[in-house]
Computed example of a mutant assay.
Amino acid sequence: MKKKLLTVIPTIILVATPLAIGVSPADAAPKANSQKIVAKAETRPTLRLGSQSSYVKKLQQILKDVKYDTGVDGVFGSKTQAMVKKFQADHNLSADGIVGAATWNALDQNKVERQQFTVNTAIMLGQKKLGNNIIFSGDGRLLKDSKKQPYYRFKAANKDWIKQGGTGTIGWYHIYKDGRIVAK
């Protein structure tokens, strides 16, 4: 009987510990949840050339969603590697073609930022600064500068110059969420 009692006591102590140290179960719960979220992020696989799986498929779909289309076949081939390297370079990451924690985090962040700062919003900001007679074109990729600030890169063309038979190109611009427009 003592053995059973000793086995139960540590369990009771562990459950009662938050209350014993003055922390309510409600305060303890968010910490447990945040730890689960961190643990989930850490369970993403490291993917590289030659990997084959369904996260490879998920990776390819995520890349496609953020305008780095590789095709979605579940095989981490040379095209997927090239797009991963391009994404990494565009986001000031080490462009090694290996998808580890930093690349997964950048992909997740890019998805959220694209929802908060759309291509159409960037074009409206550009037209507000440069005029409604300007047409913007680009590949729709949300990039990061050296200070990790997101921007879209657009070629700007003048509608009147196009009507006159020219390309209309007036330059390349980086348009930021805060309304900054930087000529490149």
Rank of each mutant, 00 (worst) to 15 (best):
K36A: 14
A26T: 10
S24M: 06
V23K: 08
S53D: 02
Q60A: 04
K40T: 14
N33C: 08
Y68A: 06
T70H: 02
V66A: 05
M83P: 01
R44M: 09
A32T: 09
A32C: 10
S53N: 02
D27H: 09
F76S: 10
V84D: 07
K86S: 10
R44Q: 14
R44N: 13
D65C: 04
D27G: 11
K67W: 10
V75D: 12
I62T: 07
S24Y: 00
T80N: 06
D69I: 05
K58G: 15
T70W: 03
G71V: 04
G22R: 02
T80Q: 05
T70A: 07
I62N: 08
G71T: 03
G77L: 02
K85M: 14
A29Y: 14
G50M: 00
I37Y: 04
N33W: 13
Y55G: 11
K40N: 10
K58R: 15
V72C: 08
S24E: 03
V56I: 05
S78E: 14
K79S: 11
N33E: 14
K79Q: 13
I62R: 08
V84P: 00
A28P: 06
Q52D: 09
T80D: 01
S24A: 08
D65L: 05
L47I: 03
G71C: 03
D65Y: 01
A41E: 15
A82Q: 05
S34T: 13
K40A: 13
N33P: 06
Y55L: 07
Q60D: 04
D73K: 00
V56D: 03
F76A: 04
E42C: 09
Q60V: 01
D69C: 02
V23Y: 09
S78G: 08
Y68L: 04
V75Q: 12
S54Y: 06
M83D: 04
K58I: 15
Q60C: 06
L59V: 02
K58Y: 15
V72E: 01
M83T: 05
